[in-house]
Design a protein around this nucleic acid. Structure first.
Length: 202
DNA sequence: GATCTAACCTAATCAGCTC
DNA sequence: GAGCTGATTAGGTTAGATC
């Protein structure tokens, strides 16, 4: 079985002034068996390896992305899901009180870093990974609620400062996509976001 | 400094639940 | 069935770890 191990850095990312989680290192054996693991398989891997399930939910898409690119470079067909699709995670019911807490946090920061998310996980009793998903969905579906975002629309509409590459507009949208900040979200490299979101800590 | 890749982001979509 | 929203996916960027 593949081993997942924490990287050698001894301090948590937040303690080092970063808004990201510590990195893990993973080998590919588990991926070759099933590149699309369902919740049951991921939980089983968690039991076997001792790494939390949400880390697999990050690692597997990343690995699929790499493999897909490689297959395309070599003009090989990607096998895809194939076979029976495994079960999804059971839908998590978020209570009104939990939503209230999350909305409060969203007002303050639409892009909470790992420390904030873990604090909210403690307060709400929800898993941190579910909070991350909740923020992702919320930012997309309620763009006006993203705390400070609307206030920086003007800054986002302009060019980033020299040396700060502006992220390209979102993909997979055949229709014209609103500019940064227009719908209430800010590109990570937007000058308005730099110094505000979880990246502010760096 | 270059490279690799986990972490993170988005839009799009699927799917469960409530009305 | 419509609407809402949690979960998943593809595809992109960022930044920490390693060489």
């Amino acid at each position: 079985m593949a081993l997942l191990t924490p990287s050698d850095s001894t301090l948590p990312a937040e303690a080092r002034g970063l808004g990201r989680r510590r990195r893990l290192v993973c080998s590919r054996t588990c991926f070759e068996r099933n590149p699309y693991p369902g919740i049951a398989t991921r939980e089983q891997l968690t039991q076997t390896i001792g790494i939390l399930e949400p880390r697999f939910q990050i690692w597997f898409p990343n690995e699929r992305s790499r493999q897909l690119r490689q297959h395309r470079r070599e003009s090989r067909p990607w096998p895809g899901k194939g076979g029976q699709q495994e079960d999804r995670r059971k839908r998590n019911a978020v209570t009104r009180s939990q939503i209230a807490l999350l909305l409060q946090a969203l007002e303050q920061d639409g892009f909470p870093g790992i420390a904030t998310r873990e604090e909210m996980a403690r307060e709400t009793g929800l898993p941190e990974s579910r909070i991350q998903i909740w923020f992702q969905n919320r930012r997309v579906r309620h763009p006006g609620q993203g705390g400070r975002a609307p206030a920086h629309t003007e800054a986002c509409a302009t060019r980033p400062p020299a040396g700060v590459p502006h992220r390209p507009l979102p993909r997979r949208s055949p229709s014209p996509t609103p500019g940064c900040g227009e719908r209430g979200f800010l590109h990570p490299t937007c000058p308005a976001r730099l110094g505000l979101s979880h990246r502010r800590l760096s």
